[in-house]
Every structure is written in structure tokens, then in C-alpha cells.
Simulated assay, not measured.
Amino acid sequence: MNRTRLLTTMAVFVAIGTIGAHLLWFPTGIAKAYPVQHAVNVMAAVILGPIPAVIIAFVIGLLRNLLGIGTLLAFPGGMVGALLAGYLYRFTKKKPMAAVGELIGTGIIGSLLSVPYANVLMGQSVGALAFVPGFLISSSTGAILGLLVLSRVNHSQVVPNQLHT
């Protein structure tokens, strides 16, 4: 895949994730849940691979924070989920495993990483149960949405197979 196509595809995913943050989100304590972010993580992990998916998650989190619609918790949650989704898909070549990676990466690992992150960077003294339920709901909803979109994209040949890295 050429660099221009890769960067353009990444930019489209960033746009979808950033615009989606305005359209669909819900509060989960001091965090905000963005299912569209998790859908983008799954789609980017399958189409582009783990590293581009992590970069996309970082840029979406950064833009959400710069626009005042996100929290610092976007970074540990979104990036870990994208990474695990990408690697599970890469090793298994099964799209549902990307969704499992997103669910485990964001819903469990990302939520647990958010505890010290919130304590140190946000001055919030919270326990693991403050994040796990909301992160699990958001990541599972988004992962299912991402799988549904991927099932439609695959049939319509919108994304050529050459995008896989």
C-alpha cells in the first residue's frame, strides 16, 4: 500500500472518530464513553494494522481533548484497545478477534491503566470499578458496530485488500 493511500485512509478514520464523538457519547463518572472510537479502533485494526490503529486512536483522543469534548482518559483506553485489536486480528485473521482485542484492550486493560492515570494526571482518586463498567459497555458497543461496518465494507469492495499490512 502506498503512503498516500495509508495517510488518507488514516485521516478518514480520524475524521469519523472525531465527528462521531460529537454525535454519540455518554458519561461514565469522570470519563466519557465514545463507542464510535471503539468502532474505529476495530475497523482500523483490521484494515490497516496495529500501529496505524494506535496512531489513529492517539490523534482522535488528542483532537477530542483540544476541542474540549474528551478527557485525558482517551489515551490509555483507546490506544491499548487499538493495539490489541490489531495484533489479535494480525495473528488470527479473524475479524471477531479484533473486536475481542478491543474489548479486552480498552474494556479491561485500558480501564485499569486509567486508574493511576486519573490519580496522577487528573487529580481524581478512584478505584478500578470507577472505569471498568463504562469502558466495557462503550468498547463492546463500539466493537460490535465496527464488526457490522466491516461486514458491509467487505461485501461492497470499498476497501481494497491491498490496504492490509
Rank of each mutant, 00 (worst) to 15 (best):
Thr92Asn: 00
Gly105His: 07
Tyr89Ala: 13
Thr106Pro: 02
Leu83Tyr: 14
Leu62Ile: 05
Thr106Phe: 08
Thr141Phe: 00
Arg64Ile: 03
Val40Ser: 06
Gly105Leu: 08
Thr165Met: 04
Ile51Met: 13
Arg5Thr: 15
Ala74Leu: 04
Ser111Gly: 11
Leu129Trp: 14
Thr18Leu: 03
Leu62Thr: 05
Val54Trp: 03
Ile47Pro: 02
Ser111Asn: 11
Leu163Tyr: 14
Arg5Val: 13
Leu67Ser: 04
Ala98His: 05
Ile56Phe: 07
Ser140Arg: 03
Ser139Arg: 02
Ser151Leu: 08
Gly29Lys: 14
Leu147Asp: 04
Leu23Trp: 12
Ala44Tyr: 00
Gln37Leu: 00
Leu103His: 00
Thr9Arg: 13
Val36Ile: 15
Leu84Ala: 10
Leu145Pro: 00
Leu7Lys: 11
Ala57His: 00
Ile19Tyr: 02
Ser139Asn: 09
Leu136Phe: 12
Thr8Arg: 08
Leu148Gln: 10
Ala99Gln: 07
Ala99Met: 13
Trp25Ala: 15
Phe135Cys: 10
Gly110Glu: 13
Leu163His: 05
Thr9Gln: 13
Val36Arg: 06
Thr9Ser: 14
Ile30Tyr: 02
Ile109Gly: 11
Thr92Met: 02
Thr141Ile: 15
Ala44Trp: 02
Leu48Thr: 08
His155Lys: 15
Ala53Trp: 07
Gly20Glu: 15
Tyr117Thr: 10
Lys95Asn: 03
Val59Ala: 06
Ile69Pro: 00
Leu24Asn: 12
Met122Phe: 06
Gly146Ser: 10
Asn41Phe: 09
Ala15Ile: 10
Tyr87Asn: 01
Leu88Ala: 09
Ala15Pro: 02
Ile108Asn: 09
Ala21His: 09
Met79Ile: 06
Ala74Gln: 11
Val46Asp: 01
Ile51Ala: 14
Leu136Glu: 07
Gly49His: 10
Thr4Gly: 13
Ser114Arg: 06
Leu63Trp: 05
Ile47Ala: 10
Thr165Gly: 13
Ser138Pro: 01
Val54Cys: 04
Gly68Ser: 00
Met1Arg: 11
Arg64Cys: 12
Phe58Thr: 04
Asn154Tyr: 05
Pro76Cys: 07
Val159Lys: 09
Ala128Val: 14
Ile30Ser: 08
Met43Thr: 10
Gly105Phe: 11
Val46Phe: 07
Ser114Phe: 06
Leu136Asp: 05
Asn2Lys: 13
Ala53Cys: 03
